[in-house]
Amino acid sequence: MNRAYAMLIGSVFLWGLTVVPMKWTLETIQPFTLMFLRLLLASIFLLPFAFIRRRRSPIQPAPIPWLRIAMLSLTGVSGYFWLNTYGISLTSGVNASIISATLPLFTLLLAAFYLKEQILLTQWIGLALGIGGVLLITIQPQATGQHSFWGDFLVLASQLIWTVYIVQLKRPRGEEKISSEMFTALSFFLGSLMLLPFALWEIGRFGLPTVSGKSLASFLFLVFCCTMLAYLLWNKALETIAASKAGIYLNAIPLFNVLTAILLLNEQMSWRTVLGGSFVLAGVVWAERRKSAEMQAAVKAE
């Protein structure tokens, strides 16, 4: 297997294990505090390594586009973590995982408006199926202890803002000239600074978090595996794999998260969740199928 694709699969697998350790960590740590500590600790470990590599580079390093990285961090790091983590704290792992599967649909929609990419009628049908599935999951007659409309809504919003991040990366403005390690480390660091005011407010209101062995182990797994290693593998893989091809692999993340939530969190799936998830999956598969067909037709035309 190509090394780049192995790194891509590795990052997707690690992201697919995120929901369970996050739910366990949230048992003792408030959401904003968790997000801030997760990003700060990851950046503390990555920044020295990135700067050492930059200093030892045989060629003159490109200047760091601080403003551009800050904008990307606002959407792809702090904004995404802010919405996703807080949403997961309010809803079930199964719901959060299935709603996260709408990412390719949002990417398709935003690419049409921002990048002026054409959407076929069949792709609009895929979008409609996905939106219908999300509505079926989120709008339920009675919220259970595991389910919250606002939690589902925040997870959905996190996918939208992550889509903004992906679309921004399709039009690079200097970030492609620095190493993936440096880009990842600075994104985490700037993202943690953006979340600091929220974490301080949370600590002032609820006090310092208590730590158990379970929450500590889950937190360290989030930092070193689901954050540092996953992002490094993903950004490194994108140096040689087109974002359009890499994005298809993201579809596997919700599947891993659903399976682990059911097995390790003992969560149940209602008929609405199963039906809504089927609609979301059908919409994504249909949209991606049309996209793959277009790419093959373009290759043959050349």
Score class of each variant (00 low, 15 high):
residue 214 K to T: 13
residue 231 Y to A: 00
residue 208 L to F: 12
residue 217 A to T: 14
residue 218 S to Y: 00
residue 243 A to T: 15
residue 232 L to K: 07
residue 234 W to M: 02
residue 225 C to N: 12
residue 217 A to K: 12
residue 208 L to I: 08
residue 214 K to V: 12
residue 239 E to K: 15
residue 238 L to S: 00
residue 228 M to T: 14
residue 209 P to E: 07
residue 210 T to Y: 10
residue 237 A to Q: 03
residue 208 L to T: 11
residue 214 K to I: 12
residue 221 F to T: 13
residue 231 Y to M: 03
residue 219 F to L: 01
residue 209 P to V: 01
residue 209 P to N: 05
residue 215 S to N: 07
residue 237 A to Y: 05
residue 222 L to V: 10
residue 213 G to P: 09
residue 235 N to L: 06
residue 228 M to R: 08
residue 211 V to T: 11
residue 224 F to Q: 07
residue 212 S to M: 01
residue 229 L to N: 09
residue 210 T to C: 07
residue 213 G to S: 12
residue 231 Y to E: 00
residue 216 L to Y: 05
residue 244 S to I: 14
residue 239 E to Y: 12
residue 244 S to P: 11
residue 236 K to A: 13
residue 211 V to E: 01
residue 209 P to Y: 00
residue 236 K to S: 13
residue 239 E to I: 13
residue 225 C to F: 15
residue 232 L to R: 07
residue 244 S to C: 10
residue 228 M to D: 10
residue 243 A to V: 15
residue 219 F to T: 01
residue 228 M to S: 14
residue 218 S to V: 03
residue 218 S to R: 03
residue 234 W to G: 01
residue 222 L to K: 08
residue 238 L to M: 09
residue 208 L to H: 05
residue 234 W to V: 03
residue 219 F to K: 00
residue 212 S to V: 04
residue 208 L to Y: 10
residue 217 A to E: 05
residue 243 A to G: 13
residue 243 A to C: 11
residue 226 C to L: 04
residue 226 C to M: 06
residue 223 V to A: 05
residue 220 L to P: 02
residue 237 A to F: 07
residue 226 C to V: 03
residue 237 A to G: 03
residue 231 Y to G: 01
residue 241 I to M: 08
residue 226 C to D: 05
residue 208 L to M: 13
residue 230 A to M: 04
residue 240 T to A: 14
residue 211 V to C: 01
residue 222 L to G: 09
residue 220 L to Y: 00
residue 214 K to L: 13
residue 235 N to G: 02
residue 209 P to D: 11
residue 243 A to M: 15
residue 232 L to E: 06
residue 222 L to H: 09
residue 216 L to H: 04
residue 245 K to R: 15
residue 227 T to A: 08
residue 207 G to P: 02
residue 221 F to H: 08
residue 211 V to P: 02
residue 215 S to W: 03
residue 209 P to Q: 05
residue 244 S to V: 15
residue 207 G to Y: 00
residue 223 V to H: 04
residue 245 K to Q: 15
residue 231 Y to R: 03
residue 225 C to I: 10
residue 213 G to W: 08
residue 240 T to M: 09
residue 221 F to M: 11
residue 235 N to H: 09
residue 237 A to C: 06
residue 228 M to H: 07
residue 230 A to N: 01
residue 228 M to K: 09
residue 232 L to G: 04
residue 236 K to R: 14
residue 212 S to K: 06
residue 224 F to V: 09
residue 229 L to P: 11
residue 220 L to K: 00
residue 237 A to R: 03
residue 240 T to L: 08
residue 241 I to L: 13
residue 216 L to K: 04
residue 244 S to Y: 13
residue 213 G to F: 09
residue 233 L to T: 11
residue 232 L to H: 04
residue 238 L to C: 01
residue 237 A to I: 06
residue 227 T to W: 04
residue 238 L to G: 00
residue 235 N to A: 06
residue 216 L to M: 12
residue 242 A to G: 10
residue 239 E to Q: 15
residue 226 C to Q: 05
residue 233 L to M: 15
residue 229 L to A: 14
residue 238 L to W: 02
residue 223 V to I: 10
residue 236 K to W: 11
residue 220 L to C: 08
residue 215 S to A: 09
